[in-house]
């Protein structure tokens, strides 16, 4: 660990089976107990690897939002062609009344 760094290098975030189960629920994934144990180990290893970047000396650098040296990439407010509706709906598993048909929704709108 370097001395003069304003931001200390981040430690590998601890991740346990509860967090993995929570993230799996958010992603609508059903995990068996075996999978939960296995993925917890794998995710912890991946996070530890990613945390190695924290060892770099970055005290003098501004945080960056994007790796590309670009900002203000904008387009004019001009309409462009849209897709053909029948073609689009034909790609969906189910359609009705010119709309996408989806299973009933449990819970609330965000």
């Amino acid at each position: 660990m370097s001395g003069g760094d304003a931001r200390p290098p981040s430690k590998p975030p601890a991740i346990g089976p509860e967090q993995v189960a929570h993230v799996a629920r958010l992603a609508r994934l059903e995990l068996s107990d075996d999978e939960l144990t296995r993925f917890t180990g794998q995710l912890a290893a991946a996070l530890a690897y990613a945390a190695e970047i924290g060892e770099l000396e970055v005290g003098d650098l501004e945080p960056m939002a994007h790796p590309l040296p670009l900002q203000n990439v904008l387009r004019d407010d001009e309409p462009e062609p849209t897709l053909d509706r029948d073609t689009v709906l034909a790609e969906a598993p189910a359609a009705e009344d010119h709309r996408f048909r989806v299973p009933r929704i449990l819970g609330d709108e965000p």
């Binding site: 996408f100 989806v102 299973p103 009933r104 929704i105």
Partner: peptide, 17 residues
Amino acid sequence: HIGGTGRIGGADYALVD
């Protein structure tokens, strides 16, 4: 939301535009 009670959770299915 189509069918059922008309409420979100009670519908049979939904259509999206």
